[in-house]
Design a protein around this nucleic acid. Structure first.
Length: 296
DNA sequence: AATATTTACAACCGCGGGAGA
DNA sequence: CTCTCCCGCGGTTGTAAATAT
């Protein structure tokens, strides 16, 4: 990971704990946006924070990173969680992969504070309740349960997604809009953008199949769609944040996993210069992200 | 209005796995 | 092979806000 002991801080400063102040958030955000996180243990040193790397990482992933969808869970999201929890047990990170913009921590918390009770109460009238065989031990069980019966269209499509490939289960595409339940999903593959970019299959296929095909429109149309998705999302920069921007990507992956808008095999780099017009946010915009991408 | 209790969510902790030295 | 470091995950705890008494 290029982040071994040489990068390690020599003396350990006392680490602050507890809630993050706005100033700390600011520092961390600025630093990561500008430099990327690289090795998390060096982030607090370089960013001038008295936190440990782990804490920084968590704060970034769960709260600061762009693309997080804050606020109430939609009923569809709720259903998805219930369904996936039924399938996977407490595999929050896996469940989170199917809920773009939501973090595993958020989902976990939501489960414990809302859904668990809801299911416990029986909530007979709802689909959610039917998802479970309502023996109470299901609820806290960490092991995935066998599917006994699941007949909602959503469930089937979920199953399809999960069965289709090991990759598919982990990579969901940025959805183009927060549309209500759609029986027929977008024809686009369900992949996170960044994950899509980092797929092995992408490496092997993309340059001929997508990015560097003679018909470059293919890639550009994907990018268009992606960007459209980003901006259609109309992240209200509520609370002075940019959380809703890029809601459907997995921005942590974007930052951490060498996101490159380039053709990896052709050798000649094909960067895509997204232009987002005015600075939507002085601290973060696509350009600054792209700059990060360029530099790493 | 003051206090106690509950709720919701942010953050911490510990563990396991992967990778490099 | 062992050690060390880092990352990611899931469980748990802490705390602020909301609600009840």
């Amino acid at each position: 990971m290029g982040c071994k002991s040489s990068d390690k801080p020599k003396q350990k400063p006392k680490h602050r704990k507890g809630l993050w102040s706005p100033d700390e958030d600011q520092r961390l955000r600025n630093y990561v946006l500008k430099h990327g996180h690289g090795c998390w243990s060096s982030v607090p040193i370089n960013a001038g924070l008295q936190r440990n790397g782990k804490s920084c990482r968590l704060r970034w992933i769960n709260y600061l990173r762009p693309g997080l969808k804050r606020g109430l869970f939609s009923s569809q999201e709720e259903e998805t969680i219930l369904t996936l929890h039924r399938l996977l047990g407490n595999k929050w990170s896996q469940i989170a992969q199917h809920l773009p913009g939501r973090t595993d921590n958020e989902i976990k918390n939501y489960w414990h504070s809302h859904l668990k009770k809801k299911v416990l109460k029986g909530d007979q009238g709802t689909k959610e309740a039917n998802v479970y065989n309502t023996t109470s031990d299901n609820l806290d069980n960490n092991s995935p349960k066998k599917i006994t019966m699941m007949q909602t269209p959503d469930f089937e499509s979920l199953l399809m997604n999960m069965e289709n490939s090991s990759t598919d289960a982990d990579q969901s595409v940025p959805r183009m809009s927060e549309s209500p339940k759609q029986p027929n999903r977008s024809s686009l593959p369900k992949l996170m953008f960044a994950e899509w970019l980092s797929l092995d299959s992408f490496s092997s296929l993309s340059c001929e199949g997508i990015m560097s095909s003679k018909d470059q429109n293919v890639s550009s149309s994907f990018q268009d769609n992606f960007m459209q998705g980003c901006f259609l999302n109309e992240g209200t920069f509520g609370n002075g944040e940019y959380r809703n921007l890029l809601s459907y990507a997995s921005p942590d992956d974007m930052f951490s996993s060498q996101l490159k808008f380039e053709c990896q095999s052709s050798g000649n780099e094909q960067f895509v210069d997204f232009s987002c017009g005015e600075d939507i946010c002085s601290e973060f915009n696509m350009r600054s992200e792209l700059r990060y991408i360029y530099e790493h």
